[in-house]
Design a protein around this nucleic acid. Structure first.
Lengths: 334, 334
DNA sequence: CTGTTAGCGCCTTCAT
DNA sequence: ATGAAGGCGCTAACAG
């Protein structure tokens, strides 16, 4: 059995209150007893039982993280940001993922809720009825890229629309007119917003939009590329649903002998680290994923500590990153 | 304030013991009261307080995961495997990373220890003196890719030596003689073992080994590639410290106008998903990362439940994945 | 300054 | 079958 506060008190010859006071620096204790307690505590290797502590304090020292997945570079970046900030704020991260369906999501929410002091939720594909359970909790919540309404939570969303519009404009400015977009998965609000931004830019320029089905995986991107290659008049540029989708598309184009960017330009979205090392390096819209994670944790930590900051909804600015997977439209492709 | 067992008891008109019994199915309770309790509990949205529960049971329902990093594809794969298995076993994952130095590692260990029922530790760069703290704990431990001795823990290690030797042999069989290795970071036991496997194969073939400094990052790989390119007689093949290192090297070779694999073959290690979509697709040694994570959790869950299985040390087999970044030695490079 | 005491919410004997 | 009571390890209010 592990040492308890009683063991320390006995060995130091004091009462348990004194031990508690010394360990928590909660009132003045005579130097003599303080030393006694410190020594006893160290020799026993004592550390307070967190369960007993949180039974009283109603604090767990943990932050819950609810994610749809945990694999892929996007989430690894995100977790990295979350984790670093959590450590700075002396919190642990209780991670729970794979909640793509509403029922799973709600169950996870419920169980996680009482075990943590705050909740970071990213559920881009769960709709408002699913996230309604978030309404009931008294736990502070930060929403990442989650489209729900009327919640008392801080919200961080990405500039999907604006990023996509800027990217499309850049392509238009480089002389492209036939620009296609590979759509994301049907349920994705992010993908919808990106498609809308693309459409807006195309409309402004009086160009004809062209959407092909796709998804967020490399496989989906590859398949979409094959569909695009078989089109009557092939587009000269493609906006992929995200970076992974772009990688798959580029790989498939290459397999078909279609050169990127000479024959066709391809751009991604997210700004994953690996886009820089891809061949060709991929033009993308960089979302500061790790930074967002860190900011989310800092906000949450502040609210858990009781800082009465007003809730707010923050639109995270994105940045166009121009690389070699896109180029001005070539004469032979027009 | 959230509902407690007392609230449920009051509303149902029974004692708290009865409530507890109904909720835990612990003895026979009359159908009538059972119904009363269930209804009261549901209408109040009652769920037991985990802190109070674990104060008695000494169980937390959480598994601790101690990692050196959390970013990068390797860890995202690993977490994915851990997470899935954790859910199957009804555990949460308490994640803590960035423990590269012994002091941080030990501190994290200590704090995590009492909050979890079991510990999964991956600390490839922490030496035996650092992991000694693991000896003291009564918490079941599973070690991943961690080289410590005398611990009462399950251990999963990768076939670094054998994988690297097989890869080197393959290159030798393809006619390469001047094969270089890019070394990993100095503290890495994995890298050391891979280097040893390479050396063994080279020795067997009577070929002269050549090691250049490197690391596990793309940047380190790129730098090593530049060093290799400036060598008097350039090798015809390179074993990178891992996949990221290989990506960086390939990218740097390309920038210098050195074609992979025409001018030089490059191979990685780990078998990350993205190696398949790289250009050229990268020859590598696949380590079943997610599977290992899942198995680790299943083992740990079993031991937490009290299954008296013997501890064991498992060497995880790896698999050679041949792709286009390596090719038989070309006439002009000899 | 220090020790005693009363719970925090729950499970578990022990009686009834 | 059910209720009362004790205690898990700790903190905080209350006496001294």
């Amino acid at each position: 059995m592990r040492a308890t506060i009683h063991d320390v008190a006995r060995q130091a010859g004091v009462s348990i209150s004194t031990v508690s006071r010394v360990l928590n620096n909660t009132c003045v204790v005579s130097e003599e007893k303080r030393k006694l307690v410190t020594e006893a505590s160290e020799s026993l290797g004592y550390t307070p039982n967190p369960a007993a502590r949180s039974l009283l304090s109603k604090k767990t020292g943990a932050l819950g993280v609810l994610l749809p997945f945990v694999s892929g570079e996007f989430f690894s970046e995100l977790l990295s940001g979350l984790d670093e900030a959590a450590q700075e704020n002396d919190f642990f991260l209780l991670v729970s993922s794979s909640h793509r369906r509403t029922s799973e999501f709600q169950k996870a929410m419920q169980v996680l809720d009482k075990r943590v002091d705050g909740l970071i939720v990213m559920a881009p594909e769960i709709d408002a009825s699913g996230t309604a359970s978030l309404l009931k909790t008294e736990t502070p919540v930060v929403l990442l890229n989650t489209y729900a309404r009327g919640l008392t939570a801080d919200v961080f969303n990405f500039e999907n629309f604006e990023g996509s519009r800027r990217l499309t404009r850049h392509l238009l400015d480089s002389g492209h007119r036939r620009i296609a977009i590979i759509q994301g998965p049907p349920g994705s609000e992010d993908a919808r917003q990106r498609a809308a931004g693309y459409r807006a830019a195309m409309d402004e320029a009086g160009a004809e939009p062209l959407a092909v089905a796709g998804g967020f995986s490399r496989e989906a991107g590859a398949e979409a590329a094959r569909a695009i290659a078989s089109l009557g008049t092939r587009p000269t540029a493609v906006l992929a649903a995200n970076d992974y989708c772009a990688m798959g598309a580029i790989s498939a184009f290459r397999d078909m002998g279609i050169s990127v960017p000479d024959d066709i330009s391809v751009a991604g979205f997210d700004g994953l680290p690996s886009t820089q090392y891809a061949f060709p390096p991929i033009t993308t819209v960089r979302v500061p994923i790790a930074e967002i994670g860190a900011r989310a944790v800092h906000r949450l930590a502040a609210r858990v500590r009781g800082d009465e900051e007003p809730l707010y909804e923050h639109m995270v600015p994105v940045e166009l990153v121009l690389r070699e997977s896109t180029a001005p439209v070539a004469a032979h492709t027009v």
